[in-house]
């Protein structure tokens, strides 16, 4: 498959009065055309910042891209002018945000908000753009689209607003859609509908999707590959099956154990990961997860582990994979069914 996006050694920091927060500390990954990649991690792990860097939406200052390249469709996004970037946003890469209640302009008709991008990028006539907006609303499964197009966001329910957000994002048929926790703010029943919708639309339009989430359950039937982020770095990557059935990083184990499953013993508590992520003002020298890791070894506190390959396309940054490390039996993996 053809590469659509290639991010190499991306580093993003925020300068605050208390010092520099290293939010993203050297992230590399790629996305192929038409594929779905999930980025998983707790809040504050740098996943949203990475995506905002791809959209060049990081507020600067205080944010600053310290290093790295982002090659999208053959162009290095970090080197484009703001004007050139405008032509990419919304037309080639678009984004769906977490909270549909606040992501739509409350004083503008939904149809007009969909039409805006079309008028800008495809130089569409407003009346034609309105027709296309109706078409998009139908596509994302909003009934009565002809009437809905002239309504305001507050007349839409939460799920419908997120559908409208997806319609805005897909209006110009982008090559890449970044969905930043698109279901977190929704009711559980609506979540499944939105995920189904995204999967269907991806098949129809062949759009590549990066879906950000802190919930591994969300990605189970959507993504082909999974990247696990922790404290500004990718600590494990692999195909969906590899991550679910053969995870290698203790943090990934923790994440998997915190997903409720129907098989879960009622008398057992859902596992959680003790402690909080490290302070990114002064990230630890060694593995950032060591302090929360029950398998931590002395080396974990002293040296950052490099990526150890597990199989083709699957690797994890964990000293447990070093040949000298003691063998540890993962608490999850083969036994987990999802």
């Amino acid at each position: 498959m053809e590469r659509l996006l290639e991010v190499k050694d991306l580093q993003v920091s925020f300068k605050t009065y208390a010092g520099e927060v290293k939010a993203v500390r050297g992230v590399s990954f790629h996305v192929d055309r038409g594929e779905t990649v999930a980025v998983v991690g707790e809040s504050g792990c740098g996943k949203s910042v990475t995506m905002q860097a791809i959209m060049r939406l990081i507020p600067m200052p205080p944010g600053v891209i310290k290093n790295g390249t982002i090659i999208f469709d053959g162009k290095d996004i970090t080197k484009l002018s703001e004007k050139e970037m405008e032509h990419i946003r919304g037309s080639e890469i678009s984004m769906v945000f977490q909270d549909p209640m606040t992501s739509l302009n409350p004083t503008m008709k939904v149809g007009a908000q969909i039409a805006e991008g079309l008028i800008k990028h495809q130089k569409m006539h407003p009346s034609k753009a309105r027709e296309k907006a109706i078409e998009m609303l139908k596509l994302v499964g909003i009934p009565n689209a002809e009437k809905r197009v002239d309504q305001y966001p507050h007349e839409f329910s939460g799920g419908m607003r997120q559908r409208a957000m997806i319609a805005i994002a897909l209006a110009c048929n982008p090559k890449l859609l970044i969905a930043d926790e698109p279901t977190t703010a929704l009711d559980v029943t609506i979540q499944a509908q939105i995920l189904d919708l995204m999967r269907d639309l991806q098949k129809k339009l062949n759009t590549a999707i990066i879906i950000i989430t802190h919930n591994l359950g969300v990605v189970a039937n959507l993504a082909q590959r999974v990247l696990v982020m922790y404290a500004g770095k990718i600590i494990e990557r692999g195909s969906l099956d590899e991550i679910f059935y053969n995870p290698r990083h203790p943090y990934t184990w923790g994440l998997l154990m915190s997903v409720p499953t129907p098989e879960l013993d009622k008398n057992k508590r859902l596992a959680s990961i003790d402690g909080t992520p490290p302070d990114l003002f002064a990230p630890p020298v060694g593995c950032a997860f060591a302090a929360r890791c029950e398998y931590a070894m002395r080396i974990c506190y002293e040296k950052y582990p490099e990526d150890f390959p597990v199989s083709d396309g699957h690797s994890a940054a964990c000293w447990l994979l070093h040949p000298m490390a003691p063998k540890v039996k993962p608490p999850v993996g083969k036994g987990v069914t999802l």
């Binding site: 939406l57 405008e86 946003r89 606040t102 302009n105 805006e116 805005i168």
Partner: peptide, 20 residues
């Protein structure tokens, strides 16, 4: 957030300021 949405749509700063 809706200003972020407007930016993500690729609108120019002028359009974002006046329309949103």
């Amino acid at each position: 957030d809706f200003i972020k949405t407007a930016k993500a749509k690729g609108l120019s700063p002028f359009q974002i300021i006046w329309k949103h």
